[in-house]
Design a protein around this nucleic acid. Structure first.
Length: 488
DNA sequence: ATGTGC
């Protein structure tokens, strides 16, 4: 495929900034000139970043710049990025890391690359309920959900032992204590079913028992803990949604997950809320404080921790990250549970089994080092993953193909094309129909949130998926359309 | 991402 003419000028502009970008068959290859590298003159050959992007997608210079910088990170005491890749939904990030970046590291971890939104991820359940039956009592359901999600009347109370179990061992640690002593909004949950569903939570096993590190502020020694964050979706592109399966493309995998055309589903996009912000922020600062004296700071402010010079801090960071990740796994479980309990209240004793739950913002162990996925899913062979569209557009259930060239990774969303700032700045006069909002059934208390996340602010999810199918990183299992969205 | 912010 030829590089389109309109990108020529942009590529030349990037070259002037020190970025050499070449294009071939949907793949942009990015190199940094030595002057812009984080380690000028220190490394013979810098790793190359590849970006999987359809030729007609807008090239965002800032995102390319951020990816290139991330790719050249190295620790003066040992450790470096060895490979990098970006998914088609990649776009600039606020903290110097483009969303959709994937880096492979050896001998170091990069807390600031994971950032605050530790274990942001997706969860999908099917619901045994027809669309007609759902819509018949939609308003009653919405009224109940407004209480849970938007007005904060939910009650997430647990023993200190359950809270400690959650941080240390995630869902199993929390369930063990909650099964003994059910309380709060989830007391009526079917705990036997929650135990059975644990196997469908991806990567949870690597977290269990790894989170020995938890700040005492988060883990009271005794008494009852009333958690204000658990069971809340959070802002930005986070949501809870009722969807309808509209297309099956992989019948066997769909069948194995109880997915049929016309099937309703619950999709949840949320993370570790303020716990991740607290732990991510703390470790960004700790990595900076531990930087070797006399060594120049990285221009990007992305400080790594080296296993050569600070093995104890690397281990402690991974434990801290697991602490927040476990919190996020339980948060998504509780969000699903609140939804499931409300559905049962309105529609009777309907089943809503878990299909999968997966992180897309985390440090994953890989060979002798790690793969950091910042807004990207693991896509090992046969692994289910979800790429949600923007508000009002379809989501995809996918299966990984284990494509090592692209670091076994896939997109986590459609990718923003218009910034939140641009959409809400004074003088911006977008109408609801300009933004594609008129046909979206979204329940939220603040209309600015709908505008910031409008369909028109995002790239085409269909193109994002098609590009990856063509590249051989994923196959499509099913496609879902949104029926009803809840946002904070 | 974050009860957002120098």
């Amino acid at each position: 495929m030829q590089q389109p003419k309109n990108t020529h000028r942009l590529l030349r502009a990037l070259a002037k900034q020190g970025l050499d970008v070449s294009y071939d068959n949907n793949i942009y290859t990015v190199r940094l000139n030595d002057a812009l590298s984080e380690q000028p003159n220190q490394r013979q050959e810098l790793p190359i970043a590849e970006v999987l992007l359809p030729p007609d997608f807008p090239i965002e210079g800032k995102a390319f710049q951020q990816l290139a910088r991330l790719t050249t990170l190295a620790h003066p005491g040992g450790g470096s990025v060895t490979r990098a890749f970006a998914t088609p939904d990649f776009h600039p990030g606020d903290t110097g890391v483009a969303i959709g970046s994937v880096i492979q590291t050896e001998g170091m971890v990069v807390p600031a690359a994971v950032g605050s939104d530790i274990n942001c991820g997706m969860r999908l359940h099917t619901i045994d309920l027809s669309l007609a039956d759902f819509l018949a009592q939609r308003d009653k359901f919405v009224a109940l959900m407004k209480g849970d999600y938007l007005l904060g009347t939910r009650d997430i109370t647990m023993t200190a032992a359950a809270s400690r179990g959650m941080f240390a061992d995630g869902i199993p640690g929390w369930l063990e204590q909650m099964t003994k002593q059910p309380m709060g909004s989830v007391a009526r949950s079917d705990f036997a079913q929650l135990w059975q569903e644990i196997d469908r939570v991806q990567f949870l096993g690597s977290m269990c028992g790894n989170a020995r590190w938890a700040p005492s502020e988060l883990t009271p020694a005794a008494g009852l803990v009333r958690d204000g964050d658990l069971g809340t979706v959070g802002g930005g592109n986070h949501f809870v949604e009722i969807q309808e399966v509209i297309e099956i493309r992989h019948p066997r995998l769909a069948y194995e997950s109880n997915i049929k055309v016309g099937q309703l589903a619950i999709a949840i996009h949320s993370g570790s809320r303020t716990v991740g912000k607290y732990i991510g922020g703390m470790w960004r600062d700790r990595a900076k404080a531990a930087w070797l004296k006399g060594c120049p700071f990285p221009q990007s402010d992305l400080f790594s921790l080296s296993t050569t010079t600070h093995p104890d801090l690397v281990a402690e960071y991974l434990e801290a990250e697991a602490t927040a990740a476990n919190y996020a796994f339980v948060n998504r479980l509780i969000l699903a549970e609140l939804m499931r309990l409300r559905l049962r209240e309105v529609y009777g004793d309907i089943a809503a089994p878990l299909v999968c739950d997966l992180p897309h913002n985390l440090t994953f162990p890989h060979k002798n080092g790690w793969i950091v996925r910042k807004g990207a899913c693991a896509a090992a062979a046969g692994q289910l993953l979800i790429t949600p569209g923007s508000m009002g557009t379809p989501s995809y259930l996918l299966s990984g193909l284990g494509n090592d060239r692209y670091l076994n990774s896939a997109s986590h969303g459609a990718g923003r094309s218009i910034s939140r700032f641009e959409l809400t700045r004074a003088g911006a006069n977008y109408t609801e129909s300009d933004l594609g909002l008129t046909a979206v059934d979204c329940i939220t208390l603040r209309n600015e949130r709908r505008i910031e996340e409008a369909p028109a602010a995002y790239k085409s999810i269909d193109r994002v998926i098609d590009t990856q199918v063509a590249a051989g990183t994923i196959e499509v299992v099913a496609k879902m359309r949104p029926i009803l969205t809840f946002k904070a």
